[in-house]
């Protein structure tokens, strides 16, 4: 009896899960199908099941712009933004969670406050600074202004304060420095939060559009997202190329998400529950 009810619950659970996975997967199927259609069939059904396999779209989309260079640029930008956000957030979060200094909490709230300012509001001033520094069309412009993230500091600080303070004390009695405590004790214990931050910043950097758009003029310094926008024009959008390019650009994000899925979900629940 009990066993049967358990069984029914399971079926119900899987039915619900299946329903939502179908909803989530539909747009991806649509993109995939569109990306494989010849241009004349773009607006004719079927929309969700690929029946044409016009692989040439992928080759043509790839050749329509220097995409190899765009991938390289996005990769460089993403790697350094992820590294920077993890390292700097960890150091700042450690200070906010562990060190005692006057004005600490006020400073932390000021940092939090910056999360409320929309990017559009600081876009022009940031651009002017980058322009004065002579960084237009360089990796500096793509990376440096985004090395620090208030969200990352917040995320890690909330996790760090849950780690027992006794561990720090024991380590410092054994002669460990503050930096040593951070790298050898706090960070290894905070891997769920650190990986969540890494994935968040990866997705942010990989998909970012507005900032690269403003600071990059030269075609050779463009990122993938800027490259994809090139398929949308005033005089018509090249849907099949745009979709083929989107599929290729989405694959790395999906791979990273699948690899870090567990941590990613932990990261989201962390920010919501603990504090």
């Amino acid at each position: 009896m009990v066993k049967k009810r358990f069984h029914n619950n399971r079926i119900f659970l899987y039915a619900v899960l299946l329903f939502f996975s179908v909803i989530i997967i539909l747009p991806y199927l649509w993109i995939l199908t569109m990306s494989l259609k010849p241009v004349r069939a773009i607006f004719s059904p079927p929309y969700l099941i690929p029946v044409n396999f016009h692989w040439k779209n992928y080759l043509e989309a790839w050749n329509a712009a220097p995409f190899a260079r765009f991938y390289f640029n996005t990769t460089v930008m993403t790697v350094f933004i992820v590294a920077g956000q993890v390292i700097f957030s960890a150091m700042a979060a450690y200070a906010f969670a562990r060190l005692k200094f006057p004005g600490r909490d006020i400073l932390f709230f000021i940092f939090l406050g910056t999360m409320m300012v929309p990017f559009q509001a600081i876009m022009i001033p940031s651009y002017l600074i980058v322009l004065r520094l002579g960084w237009i069309d360089t990796y500096y412009a793509l990376i440096v202004p985004r090395l620090v993230s208030a969200f990352g500091i917040f995320l890690l600080r909330q996790y760090f304060i849950t780690i027992p303070y006794e561990l720090d004390q024991a380590a410092s009695i054994d002669g460990c420095t503050k930096l040593g405590i951070l790298w050898q004790i706090i960070i290894p214990l905070s891997m769920p939060a650190v990986s969540a931050l890494a994935i968040f910043s990866f997705l942010f950097a990989w998909n970012d559009f507005l900032w690269p758009l403003i600071v990059i003029n030269k075609p050779s310094m463009r990122t993938i997202q800027l490259g994809l926008a090139m398929f949308q024009g005033k005089y018509g959008t090249r849907w099949n190329y745009l979709m083929a390019g989107t599929v290729t650009a989405t694959v790395p994000s999906i791979v990273v998400f699948l690899l870090g899925q567990k941590r990613f979900i932990e990261g989201i629940t962390l920010t919501g529950l603990k504090g």
Partner: peptide
């Protein structure tokens, strides 16, 4: 010649 998208 620098191409920039119509929306951009």
């Amino acid at each position: 010649n620098v191409y920039i998208g119509w929306g951009e």
